[in-house]
Design a protein around this nucleic acid. Structure first.
Lengths: 244, 244
DNA sequence: CGTACTATTGATAGATATCAACGCTGGTGG
DNA sequence: CCACCAGCGTTGATATCTATCAATAGTACG
């Protein structure tokens, strides 16, 4: 299996053999983290750069009334905090949603990237896509009704997971609870439950346990208003399918 | 009057005399743009870097049903697109909300920044703060009820405008329509209108025309759950007051 | 002094949250 | 291996919030 990270970064532009080797080296010393553990907390000083190799993690904030808002999903190939080390304190918490495999990359590894222009650009790209995704989530929560909101999220995840080879045709594993889904789209767990039932009823998806199948991608895209432009993928059609 | 941009960047860390001169030079050739003009549109290729010197602008996306979501306010001292030139196409539109004064900074000016570490770090910081603000907006829209939502926005703007010297005690000019406010917090213009009335009725603010007065900052902060940590300001108390 | 936004108000509809309960499942300890 | 427990998904009834629709009143501006 190809290195997950190179695979993702090459969705932007090809890398040299040397760059790929460097990325391989970076990924060696991963560790496993259990489900629902905080990786770094709001207020902590940012340390090394973390990269998710397997599992789902998220960024979130908790409000005074106990409500929590998930602001990003981190899926395999995503960096937790590529550039934050400039800042003195984290302004949000990062936690696993499922069991995860995580690498910690020494800060200096990242700092020496400028010597490798293609790699540096690829990391830039990754950071810009993260930000663009955040903007799209804002649109999603701010302007779309409940059903299109969760549908949109499912469409986005299909593409993101596909670029790292974690889809099987139009299905993937979504190791997330309905309550967590609710915290990400700004709805109640009860309401999310009903929304999912309606999406199932409309023949758009199948979701049993943690296994999601999108029955008609075109229709789900159209329904939710999903357009992948904000993911800034180089060649939308060139991504190969691969089951884990 | 001190250079607005240096003033903002020094909210992160002091700059050298040379750096400040460079920023002064960058700002010379500004142009005026009318209200409600698009500066760059979704789909366009990013060009030079733009910086707002006066007035309010915003990032927004428009959905198929005509609804629009504003994803960021750009106030004086804010960059429109610091690093996007890596990408091939804009994924959102940037437009003025009021008459604005804008500089276009040649891309190469930005690219030579790495030779000035303090400056480079300051620009990094600005970009990270933009992203952190975006996250906070997501929390705002996703998890806070209507009144706290708009209250929170007003609290944020007070601080952001203060760091560039555009506040007068606890008041500032908010050259924005209620409908635009509605498009940013994900509510209806009618509802925003009622929310504002309640905030007025509770003695929290005064808003006549475009002039906003926050009557009790502490209370508004507490009410809306505002904490400025995500703005990553170096010295919260050291900012001087200055009326325009 | 019209004209066109913008702000405001009232009445009503619709969406989403809240509250409460129940069944299912997977894991865990006896 | 079974009994228990806790978390998760599901359902129903109801309350609350926010949107919609429609109209009127300010306000700015040519």
């Amino acid at each position: 299996m190809a290195n997950l990270l190179t695979r993702k970064l090459e969705a932007f532009a090809p890398l040299s053999e040397a760059d790929r080797h460097l990325l391989d080296a970076v990924i060696r010393e991963a560790r496993d983290v259990g489900s629902r553990e905080d990786l770094i907390r709001e207020g902590d000083a940012p340390g090394d750069v973390r990269l998710i190799l397997a599992g789902f993690a998220c960024r979130y904030k908790r409000l005074a009334d106990g409500r929590r808002q998930i602001m990003a999903y981190l899926v395999p190939g995503d960096f937790c905090d590529l550039h934050v080390f400039i800042l003195k304190a984290m302004d949000h918490t990062i936690a696993t949603l499922s069991p995860c495999r995580v690498v910690e990359i020494p800060r200096r590894r990242i700092l020496e990237m400028p010597e490798r222009p293609a790699l540096a650009r690829a990391l830039w790209w990754a950071a810009l896509v993260d930000e663009a995704t955040l903007r799209e989530w804002l649109v999603n929560i701010g302007a779309r009704p409940a059903e299109q909101r969760v549908a949109h999220l499912l469409c986005e995840l299909l593409l993101r997971l596909r670029t790292v080879g974690l889809t099987n045709h139009d299905s993937y594993e979504l190791p997330i609870t309905q309550t967590e889904l609710a915290d990400t789209v700004g709805l109640t767990n009860v309401h999310v439950n009903r929304v999912l039932q309606r999406l199932r009823g409309d023949g758009l998806i199948t979701l049993r346990g943690k296994h999601l199948v999108i029955l008609d991608v075109e229709r789900l895209n159209a329904f939710s208003g999903f357009t992948p432009n904000y993911l800034h993928l180089a060649a939308p059609n060139s991504v190969a399918e691969q089951s884990h």
